[in-house]
Design a binder for these strands. Structure first.
Lengths: 126, 126
DNA sequence: CCTAGTGTATTACTCTATTGATACACAGAT
DNA sequence: ATCTGTGTATCAATAGAGTAATACACTAGG
C-alpha cells in the first residue's frame, strides 16, 4: 500500500506523510477509511513503530486523520475547527517575507511578481 | 547590504548565498564588483568569519564569484549584467510553488493571499 | 477479568549540518 | 623583513532531526 525506503534520503515518516496526504487528496483514501496499524506498517517495512506513529500523529495534527482510542486511525471526514483567517495568514508570514525579498533582489516589479503568484494559483485550481 | 538573521531557521551561509545569487542575477552586483571581506561581514553581523567564507567558497564553486589571492572576492565576469525577466522569474518558481501550496492548504482565498503579498511588498518600499 | 489489538510517552542513541576557535598561507605595500 | 589585509584548512563544539527500545494506557471482545 505504501512505499517506504529508508535509504531514500528523505525521512521515512515524511515519505509516509506525503503519500497519505496525496492519497487522501486524490480520493484513493476516502473519508472513514481505516489505515494499517503502526505495528503492521512497521513490521512490513522493517522500521520502528514510533516512526509510523510520528507520521500518524502529525497527520492527525493536520486534521487529515482522526484517532479513535484502541481503534485504527481513519481518514477524517473533512477538516473543520479552522483557525481564524488572521492567524492563518500569520502562519504564512515568514515565507512571504522571504519571497518578497527574493523578488526585490531580482529586481522583479510588483506587477510581474503578483502576476506570477496569480498564475501559479490558477495552475493548481481544479 | 545583506540581511542575515541567525534566528531565521535557514542557515546563515545559505541566506548569504541566496542573496548574493539574487543580487548578481538582478544586476545590482555587476561583474568585477568586490564583495565585503569575510571579516567585515562577520563583524557586522556578529557571526564567525568561517561562516562567510563557506558561503563565498560555495559561490566560487558555482562560478558566481572569483577569488584573487589576498584580494577581496569579486563578482565573476562570465555573467550577463542582468538575466532576462523570464529567467529571473524562473528562479523564483520553487518558492512560489511552495507558498501557494501552503496557502491553499490553509484554505486562504486567492484574494486574501495576493493582498498579503501586496502589503508585504509595500512594507519594504522606500 | 483477561487477552489481543490499538496508539503513545519517555528516553536515548546516532548521525549530520551548522557554526565556531584557532592557527595558518598568501600577496602587496612599506 | 614586516605589517596588514585578503581567504582558508583543520578540528572541535553544538544543535537538531531522525530513529529506535522500552514500557505504558486504553478499549473491544471473549
Amino acid at each position: 500500500m505504501f512505499v517506504l525506503n529508508p535509504q531514500s534520503g528523505t525521512p521515512i515518516y515524511r515519505q509516509l506523510i506525503a503519500q497519505v496526504t496525496r492519497l487522501i487528496a486524490g480520493g484513493q483514501l476516502a473519508a472513514g477509511t481505516e489505515l494499517p496499524s503502526v505495528r503492521e506498517l512497521a513490521d512490513r517495512h522493517t522500521v520502528n513503530p514510533m516512526t509510523i506513529s510520528k507520521a500518524y500523529a502529525l497527520l492527525e495534527a493536520e486534521g487529515l486523520l482522526e484517532r479513535q482510542r484502541s481503534k485504527p486511525m481513519r481518514v477524517a471526514a473533512r477538516r473543520r475547527n479552522q483557525a481564524p483567517l488572521t492567524q492563518r495568514l500569520q502562519q504564512l508570514e515568514p515565507a512571504v517575507t522571504d519571497l518578497v525579498l527574493a523578488a526585490r533582489q531580482l529586481e522583479i516589479g510588483k506587477k510581474d511578481f503578483l502576476a506570477l503568484l496569480g498564475d501559479e494559483w490558477e495552475k493548481n485550481d481544479g
